[in-house]
Computed example of a mutant assay.
Amino acid sequence: MNVQESFDKFIKDSKRVLKVSRKPDRIEYRELAKISAIGVVIIGGFGYIIVCLGYLIGI
């Protein structure tokens, strides 16, 4: 498969994805925002704990 065929396949697949996708409604958007915020808080909490442990150990 050459570059032109790969590019054409990518364009075709991209058009298909855009055709079946839709804009989320307000409820879906809020749920996604809540889940994302919870994930950020959890990962940030783990990072904070690791930094505190490193500080206590003396790294």
Rank of each mutant, 00 (worst) to 15 (best):
M1R: 05
M1P: 10
V3I: 04
Q4S: 13
Q4N: 13
Q4I: 00
S6A: 11
S6N: 13
F7H: 07
F7A: 09
D8V: 00
K9E: 03
K9R: 14
K9Q: 13
F10G: 08
F10C: 06
K12Y: 02
D13V: 04
D13I: 07
S14H: 05
S14Q: 11
S14M: 09
K15F: 04
R16A: 09
R16H: 11
V17D: 03
K19G: 00
K19A: 08
K19Y: 05
V20R: 09
V20H: 12
V20W: 03
V20L: 08
S21L: 11
R22K: 15
K23P: 00
P24G: 06
D25M: 05
D25N: 15
R26P: 00
R26H: 12
I27F: 13
Y29Q: 03
R30T: 12
E31C: 01
L32I: 07
L32P: 00
L32R: 05
I35D: 12
S36A: 13
A37Q: 15
V40Q: 04
V40M: 08
V40K: 09
I43C: 02
I43F: 12
G44H: 02
G44Q: 01
G45K: 02
G45C: 07
G45T: 15
G45H: 04
F46C: 06
F46K: 03
F46Y: 10
F46H: 00
G47F: 10
Y48S: 04
Y48N: 02
Y48V: 14
Y48T: 14
C52Y: 09
G54C: 13
G54E: 14
Y55L: 12
Y55K: 14
Y55N: 09
L56D: 02
L56Q: 04
L56W: 14
L56E: 05
I57N: 04
G58E: 04
G58C: 06
